[in-house]
Amino acid sequence: MKKKRLIIALMFLSAGFSTIYGQEWVAPESEAAVVNPLPFNNATVREGKAVYEKNCKSCHGDPGKNNPIVLTPPPPDMASEKMLANTDGSIFWKLNTGRGAMPTFKGTITDDQMWQVINFIRKFDPRNAGKLTEEALKKGTLAATINSDSTSLDITADFQGAPLAGVPVFVQVKKAFGMLDIGKVVTDANGKAIFRIPDGTAGNAEGKADFVLTFGDEFEKTQAEVQGIKVAKPVTDNPLARGNVLWSTNDRTSGWLLFAYFFVTGLVWLTILYIVIQITKIKKAGQKN
């Protein structure tokens, strides 16, 4: 009994200390009591994961891997005990308010998306173990062609000839260091979808882009590629490689810089050459007498 009381006292004490020193971020009780309107299921968790990867991962890292961005204080890991101790309502409130380096997401993502992210975070709560059914990965094949005026992609999704209806297809563009998400379409009853290539999609130096289409996570990994589509004008003037840039290749170096380098270096080494000639004269001068 005494032990129990001591532990409770210590817990209060430590909570008190952490409030003072860690400046604990606590949601108002009324907000913390708000209940997540979305059901906790595979669909909402999946949506939440997509929202998380787009908006949260760059700072908080991968849940459970404790690999946040280097900031002080470090952004907490989503799968940490401390994080999961928050109620759904209080996470929702924090997403709306923001504090310090953590911005408010009000207006950036919708309320629904916030709740989806919360569901995604809850996936790592040990109390939720077994609540999500393990689904077998679906199978399917994707095909895509570009339409005649290169403005949209015609997408077909099927499984062994049978069209896959109502399946989300994600579209990405290959960039120099990875893939850039540019959008998502859902197939219609015939397993077809049309993806309009957004204006301003960036191409390579020739103005061409390679598109990669994939199903969501519930499918076995499969992808379709449409390569070399002209989406923009070729880049003729790259501001990063203009002539007058200090750190650049020799043919792009400013003339004054090259002149200064060779003029000064040449002058100095000609003088050194002159001195070496003088040294040889010393020998001659010795032979004369």
């Binding site: 003088q278 004269k281 010393i282 020998k283 001068a285 010795g286 032979q287 007498n289």
Partner: peptide, 15 residues
Amino acid sequence: LGWKGNTRQFEIITH
């Protein structure tokens, strides 16, 4: 370098 210490050599060195 065959130094003899004559005036010409000293001139060159100083120069």
